[in-house]
Amino acid sequence: MEVTVRGVTRILLAVVLVAGAVAVPMPARAAPPDGWREAELPFLWPRRTLEFVEAAGPGDVWVAGAQGKVAIPQPTGGYFWTLGNPVVRRLKDGRWHEYPLDGWPGFSVLTGLSQHGGDVFVTGAPDLPYVARFDGARFRPVSLPAGVRRVEVRTGPGGTWAVAGKWHDRALLRLVGESFQKVELPAGHLLHDVVAVGPSDVWAVGRRDKGDETVPAAVHWNGKTWTSVPVPELWLSDSLYQVTVTTSGELWATDAGRSLTDAVHNLLRWTGSTWTKVTPPNGGRGTLTSDGTGRLVIAGEAYSDPSGPGTAAVFRRTGSGWETIQFPSSPETRFWDVDGAPGTSALWTVAHRDLTPVVLTNTP
């Protein structure tokens, strides 16, 4: 059970701060690899996390997570941890900016951050779906169809779409004007992610029914109709969970979700006529993205010894192989998200070192 920090009394907060069990250790600082630096963080309350990053430019970066998570002692022992308060910060003109999240529900947690051009969206869940759009000064809620839950927004070069629901209760949404509307899909499809390459070029991936089994699926919308496109059989998976378009227009899909714990076992590339398998980097996890030059980028772990622990790494596609940027001097660091700055090869990442979030970049 978790409760939000809103409404927690000063007395309760004092109890938590006094309790030695929730003291935050000071992690050792480790130097990043050559060409990388650790960016200064914005002010955040103790017990904070950073889980999402979106780079609008080399010096224009959004991060999101939570802060102020509180451990509440229980009479029977142990603690209940609160969700904390949402964190959305923007690094621009050399300093961090904070913007209000209008209408934020009391019992919720940030689940996503999506940015393309001047459009920035944040989402929250679980029980009260929250989607808000940045208007230049604050985030304002966007209208959603009745009954949808767990909305995840994907804004891109062809507009803003979203997937909603969980398990078999799934829906695809499209932003029309100031509100999201449900989109009808081919029967028997259960979709997990969507990307708009262009106004009449939209892809969604997931799985579909095939007799008594389910198989991975991809559907394409040409502005008028949806078409199911064959997908190769996947190793150890019956579904695609993520699709993305790079800044150079390449389309990629994977069976990994956007969570740090999801390993990239299968990686597909759209050739213009078919989906083909590509060998993924060993240790790739979570979000597919690209740098500003159009190369696919995946964060994860690199393994010098196959039987030993991995160290934090960023993998960048180079022709038919992968460039590995390893962080051997900081073995405690684990990446949560990575994104590329448009027009450059610069990358921005959010990571955790022990209990402390860090922002790492290869920009000067």
Rank of each mutant, 00 (worst) to 15 (best):
V3T: 11
G7W: 11
T9M: 09
L12W: 14
L17T: 11
A28S: 14
R37L: 06
R37N: 08
A39M: 14
E40W: 05
L41W: 02
E51G: 07
W62A: 03
W62R: 03
P75Q: 01
G84F: 02
V87K: 04
V88W: 02
V88L: 02
V88G: 03
R89Q: 13
G94I: 03
D102F: 03
G106D: 14
L110R: 05
T111E: 14
G117S: 10
V120T: 15
V122Q: 07
T123H: 03
D127A: 13
G136L: 03
P141F: 00
V142C: 02
P145A: 02
G147A: 07
V148M: 06
V153S: 09
R154F: 05
G159A: 04
A164I: 01
H168G: 05
R170L: 09
A171F: 11
L175I: 07
V183E: 14
A187S: 14
S200C: 09
W203K: 09
V205F: 11
G211P: 13
E213P: 00
T214V: 13
H220Y: 14
H220G: 04
N222V: 06
G223D: 11
T227E: 15
V229T: 15
D238V: 11
Q242D: 10
V243K: 03
V243H: 08
V245I: 04
G249Q: 02
L251N: 04
W252S: 07
W252T: 05
L260H: 12
V264Y: 03
N266M: 02
N266Y: 01
N266C: 05
N266E: 10
W270K: 01
T271F: 11
W275V: 04
K277N: 11
V278W: 11
P280K: 10
G286Y: 10
D291F: 09
G292K: 03
G292W: 04
I298Q: 08
E301Q: 14
S304G: 09
S307Q: 11
P309W: 00
T311K: 15
A313F: 04
W322R: 08
W322D: 03
E323C: 05
Q326M: 12
S329G: 15
P331F: 09
E332W: 09
E332M: 09
T333I: 13
V338A: 10
V338N: 12
T349R: 09
H352A: 13
R353T: 07
D354H: 02
L360H: 04
T361A: 01
